[in-house]
Simulated scan of single mutants.
Amino acid sequence: MNPRVTVLAGGLSHERDVSLRSGRRVAEALRASGCEVTVLDADAHLLPRLAEERPDVVWPVLHGAIGEDGALRDVLELLELRYVGSRPQSCRLAWDKPIAASVVRAAGIAVPEHIALPHATFRDLGAQPVLAAAGAWAGFPLVVKPSRGGSALGVAVVDGPGDLARAVVDAFAYGDTAVVQQHVPGTEVAVSVVEVDGELLVLPAVEIVADGGSYDYTARYTAGATEFFAPARLADDVTDRLAKAARGAHEALGLRHVSRIDFIVDPDGTPVFLEANAAPGMTETSLLPQGVAAAGLELDAVYRGIVQTAFTA
């Protein structure tokens, strides 16, 4: 049987363009595997179309809040449609970075020290005293990022006190809470986890070396702006620890079908969890497809296997 799959791409988040590119790539791979594929945008026409067409499986390839905060998954469950990806509660856990870090830390996986500062904190206590305290606590360099969001939007590495206020303001452009996080030096890697025909596979880690030193939005989605090594150039024992940590984070957060777990491997070889992605990018420069290739697998077969897992679950 060739399943009928509806790929959802687009939406109105800051990551709409990335979602459209991801959706196109997923649709191409699924068609190559023999699936019957329709691509729909997440707009006011979506629910009537889904209710009418009743696809075998819906694959949300939506980034940003609409694809990752669990709300859309709630609606798909209301419609009693099978879908690829994590259930709503797990999406909500992964979407909120401080909460995800707390869950993963409780599972015995290292995370950076961090504090979450809502916009109201700066209003009530004064921006300068709060910034001074945060900078003194974390030391420099430090990392500032929105508590929610993806594609490194609003993320900055801050080298000194003079740049901290601007970084926090930029983070607030993507949400009402900014995270100040201690900077962990080391090797940046991403480990994707997929369920293919019901079997959980941890794909080889992909090492990320951005030309400008920061794997920001431009570095992620501009061909040639970042150098990747798949598999990552790590010792075998470190690779094993990474795979164990990625699987542990995936399971601790209750994720299913597909995820990407981002780490820094510190100088001692310890994987330090950064964040989990319940709807990872699938563009031509994205990390999950590179992990599939590094594992010696065919992308269309893996994507069809993910669909088959969702269809039979």
Rank of each mutant, 00 (worst) to 15 (best):
V5K: 01
V5P: 02
T6M: 12
V7I: 10
L8W: 05
A9Y: 02
G11K: 00
H14W: 10
E15W: 06
E15P: 10
D17E: 14
D17H: 09
S22I: 10
V26N: 02
E28W: 08
L40I: 10
D41G: 15
E53K: 13
R54N: 11
L62T: 06
G64M: 04
G67D: 02
E68T: 11
R73A: 15
L76H: 05
L78Y: 09
L79C: 11
L79Q: 08
S86K: 06
P88M: 06
S90N: 09
K97G: 08
I99Q: 06
A100W: 00
A100L: 08
A101Q: 07
V103H: 02
R105L: 12
A106Y: 04
G108D: 01
G108W: 01
L117E: 00
A127Y: 05
V130R: 06
V130F: 07
L131T: 12
A132R: 06
A133I: 14
A136I: 09
K145G: 08
K145Q: 08
S151Y: 00
V155F: 08
V155P: 04
A156E: 03
V157T: 14
G160L: 11
P161T: 08
D163W: 02
A167V: 08
V169K: 10
A171R: 01
D176S: 15
V180F: 09
Q182D: 05
G186L: 12
T187D: 01
V196C: 05
V196R: 00
D197I: 10
D197E: 09
E199N: 10
I208R: 01
A210Q: 04
A210I: 07
D211W: 04
D211T: 12
G213K: 06
S214D: 02
Y215D: 07
Y217R: 08
Y217G: 09
Y221I: 13
A223Y: 00
A225N: 07
T226H: 01
F229D: 08
A232C: 15
A235W: 03
A235C: 09
D237W: 13
D237H: 14
V238H: 02
K244C: 13
H250Y: 11
H250C: 08
V258H: 02
S259P: 11
D268C: 13
D268M: 12
T270K: 08
V272S: 06
L274N: 04
A279E: 08
P280D: 00
M282F: 11
L287Q: 05
L288E: 00
P289R: 04
V292Y: 01
A294R: 05
L297D: 04
A301K: 09
V302I: 13
V302F: 00
F311W: 08
F311H: 11
